[in-house]
């Protein structure tokens, strides 16, 4: 009974535009479909913390994990599209997962708000590896097919990065070792189980600093200001790039004024010097892009995955 009463009140509130000026009236639930402390989670917490200056009610992070991030996505899908439930995701997961698992929904079933942060992906080898740059790795693979052990997460971002490299260099025949999770891939390099891998730069940096891993290149489209003296793959002559961008979504048909308030608040937060500093300390780039640009990015990324997946027979 209480819930029904609340629903009626809510309907009344939503129906009267004047009241929407004071949106949000209660804390906003931000669903991060990954474990606390993971890279998506950290960026969400930092932004969620700093956005307090621009919104009357706080952001509350919920980690709803499982099913390659689809569990969290489903939660937002089922929730009321009133702007109180947001999804914090990036195309490498959401766009790909729906394709691979044949889910009955995709990222288009949400309303995109904006892009918030981007981070870098690094290509690494162990410290005692004979390879000094990316070119050397690929030359070795070409000369010795099936010998170099490349650890990646099947159907994951690291896999698609590898496929993008294949596409640019012609068929690459490395021994693929399935290892999911940035930390696990780092461990596999450290323990000598594999020879080369791609992980997010944030996860790799402590080990690069300590000298346990060697950073060969960044898999970005342009140099990162967090590691300005690291070349990108493109510079080394390999036309493969992946830009790791995180975006915010709400349920479909959320009222426009609610969306506008959210986008505005997020934009202001990302321009705030404190936020920028906090994000940079965790190896994130504040990267605000509006709704149209976000949708374009996702479409491009999805098309790229689809091409790679079909070409390399990950999808039929």
């Amino acid at each position: 009974m209480l819930k029904r009463l609340f629903t009626v009140l809510l309907a009344v509130f939503l129906a009267v535009p004047a009241f929407a000026e004071t949106w949000p009236e209660k804390p906003v639930q931000v669903v991060v479909p990954w474990n606390p402390g993971g890279s998506s989670d950290i960026s969400a917490r930092i932004v969620g913390d700093k956005i307090r200056k621009f919104l009357p009610k706080p952001f509350v992070i919920s980690n709803i994990t499982g099913a390659l991030g689809l569990n969290g996505a489903r939660q937002v899908l089922k929730a009321r599209p009133d702007g109180y439930t947001l999804l914090w995701e990036h195309p490498g997961n959401l766009a790909v997962a729906s394709m691979v698992t044949r889910a009955n929904f995709s990222w288009r079933d949400f309303d995109a708000l904006c892009t918030v942060v981007s981070s870098d992906m690094a290509m690494l080898v162990p410290k005692n590896s004979p390879f000094k740059d990316a070119r050397a790795v690929f030359d070795y693979i070409k000369k010795n097919p099936g010998k170099l052990r490349w650890s990646l997460s099947l159907n994951g971002v690291s896999h698609f990065a590898y496929l993008a490299m294949c596409k640019s260099l012609g068929q690459l025949d490395a021994k693929l070792i399935p290892t999911s999770g940035d930390k696990d891939r780092v461990v596999s390099l450290l323990s000598g189980t594999s020879d080369v891998t791609c992980v997010s730069y944030a996860a790799a940096r402590p080990y690069v600093e300590s000298g346990d891993l060697r950073l060969l290149a960044l898999v970005n489209s342009k140099r990162s200001d967090l590691a300005p003296d690291v070349p990108t793959l493109k510079e080394q002559g390999i036309d493969a790039a992946y830009d790791y961008r995180c975006s915010v979504f709400t349920g479909k048909n959320t009222p426009d004024n609610v969306k506008a308030i959210l986008i505005d608040a997020l934009k202001k937060t990302l321009e705030d010097p404190e936020t920028i500093e906090a994000l940079k300390a965790q190896m994130f780039h504040p990267d605000f892009q509006d709704t149209a640009a976000t949708i374009r990015n996702w479409e491009q990324d999805e098309a790229l995955y689809r091409t790679l997946a079909t070409e390399y027979k990950l999808l039929k």
Binding site: G37, D212, Q282
Partner: peptide
């Protein structure tokens, strides 16, 4: 590890 990261500390060999 999440707690470390939230406080801006990166756990690693160093």
């Amino acid at each position: 590890i999440g707690a470390f990261m939230i406080h801006g500390v990166q756990p690693g060999p160093l």
